[in-house]
């Protein structure tokens, strides 16, 4: 069992590293694919494993993006002057400045988003079910609008990010690598977390939070840690995405509630929420289908997306992994009826 799983990871690692060399023309799409995988997986930490369905994780994405932008610029220039004077003067970043700024920017984005999730958690985690989903949606929507009012970071017209100092091909490879790395780290971290007491605790919160409280599980603490992990990765990937796109603005790039914000939920549901691999499978499938059919739908793609989402939720709630687990429970170590004597470590 362990050997097979090790092989699988090796295969993914090999494919992930080799893909950009074989298909350099799709490198942007593939980087986006890893972003999708990360978003769906970290959404599932709360939505699937803990039963707290956030519609506003994109808040951390956008805030991370802006935090990194401010850090990257503020280390060397006055941000207000940079954003307002951009176009007239062209600030230069040396190689060292750029990469140090980027590194610190991504870290600051992750920890800043984490801090934000901690503060929001005090308000949001006193709420159950629909209030949580709608409250987070409201926060994400409001965050995009509020960001547009802050002139310091360029207001509604946005900021151009510092230029990548090397060749365009290297730039694409570099950001592809960053996305792949972050998605892989997130996946492995989640994998480990789900195998610990923490994983059980958040499952317990999902199944019956009142019982978990009555059994003394400090639910607020677990919920906040869970959201902080999600927020950290969303913040980091937001910073990376901002630099990858090269230009950030509040509504379409930083806080895309109706695109990325809903994609991550749709992908996790499609693959099967509450499983480690479901969101990954869902993200790959969703992204590939979307990218290959998008241009043929001639403007109807968004309608098709809404329709798919509805059909997915209404008629195929369990998702691919849920369906597989129901069909082949033994493969997943789920015991039905009388238990065989072996103790399987499969989560």
């Amino acid at each position: 069992m362990l050997g097979r799983r090790f092989l699988l990871y090796l295969l993914i690692l090999g494919a992930g590293l080799a893909a950009p060399w074989f298909y350099p023309q799709y490198i942007q799409q593939m980087a986006l694919l890893w972003i999708m995988v990360l978003m769906a997986s970290t959404w599932d930490l709360l939505g699937g494993q803990m039963g707290y369905n956030s519609l506003g994780n994109i808040t951390f994405f956008g805030c991370g993006m802006y935090i990194s932008a401010v850090v990257q610029i503020a280390m060397f220039y006055d941000v207000a002057a940079y954003t307002s004077a951009f176009g007239a003067i062209k600030p230069e970043f040396t190689d060292e400045q750029y990469f140090m700024g980027l590194f610190l920017g991504i870290l600051a984005a992750g920890f800043g988003a984490m801090l934000l999730s901690y503060l929001l958690g005090f308000i949001m985690f006193g709420l159950r079910g629909p209030y949580f989903a709608i409250g987070t949606l409201g926060i994400a929507t409001a965050a995009g609008q509020l960001m547009g009012t802050i002139d310091y970071v360029g207001g509604g017209s946005g900021i151009s990010m510092p230029f990548f100092p090397w060749a365009v091909e290297i730039r694409a490879l570099f950001f592809y690598g960053l996305c792949f790395f972050l998605a892989a780290v997130a996946h492995l971290l989640l994998r480990w977390i789900y195998s610990t007491q923490f994983g059980l605790a958040i499952n317990a919160i999902r199944d019956d939070e009142d019982k978990a409280e009555a059994m003394g599980i400090p639910t607020l603490k677990y919920k906040q840690i869970g959201w902080a992990i999600t927020a950290f990765f969303m913040g980091c990937i937001g910073a990376v995405f901002g630099n990858m796109v090269g230009f950030i603005e509040p509504v379409e790039v930083a806080f895309p509630v109706a695109t990325f914000g809903i994609f991550m939920v749709a992908m996790a549901l499609l693959g099967g929420k509450g499983t480690l691999w479901g969101p990954v499978i869902g993200a790959v499938l969703f992204h590939v289908i979307k990218e290959t059919t998008w241009t043929y739908l001639l403007g109807w793609q968004w309608v098709a997306l809404g329709l798919i989402l509805i059909i997915n939720i209404v008629y195929f709630q369990e998702g691919i992994m849920g369906w597989l687990q129901r069909k082949f429970p033994e493969f997943f170590g789920i015991t039905i009826d009388h238990a065989p004597p072996d103790k399987d470590a499969e989560q």
């Binding site: 610990t196 007491q197 923490f198 059980l200 499952n203 317990a204 199944d207 019956d208 019982k211 599980i217």
Partner: peptide, 29 residues
């Protein structure tokens, strides 16, 4: 009231004491 989607062993494992003197930490295997 039990955690109905988890198996019995997992139900037991998560029911350990969460008092200050609890023996297991947050991320215990």
């Amino acid at each position: 009231r039990i955690y109905s989607k988890m198996n019995c062993v997992d139900n037991m494992l998560i029911s350990v004491s969460h008092r200050k003197d609890a023996r297991d930490g947050l991320f215990a295997p």
